[in-house]
């Protein structure tokens, strides 16, 4: 059966999706996890701290000799 989301009304306009969050898939210790709320407390804190790694600043040859 198809998953059904409830239609509710906001200011007389029928809407769908109230109370439904976004799914955010992340990788921890090699495995993907469907939603962040399955993470344990330590891993939640780690995920929140992650910073992105810049790939534009240096070319391959630069950093090999660095």
């Amino acid at each position: 059966m198809t998953k059904q989301f409830k239609v509710t009304e906001v200011n007389g306009v029928p809407v769908v999706g109230e109370g439904v969050g976004f799914e955010r898939i992340r990788r921890i210790t090699g495995y993907l996890v469907g939603t962040l709320d399955r993470f344990n407390n330590g891993k939640r804190a780690e995920e929140a701290d992650r910073v992105k790694h810049d790939v534009s600043c240096c070319s391959m040859t630069d950093s090999r000799t660095a």
């Binding site: 407390n41 804190a45 780690e46 910073v51 810049d54 790939v55 600043c57 391959m60 660095a66």
Partner: peptide, 20 residues
Amino acid sequence: RDYYTNSFHVPVYYPISAFE
């Protein structure tokens, strides 16, 4: 912090280029 960094990884919070 609430976690120790995974194995030999550079800490996830530390800004560093991908190549470095």
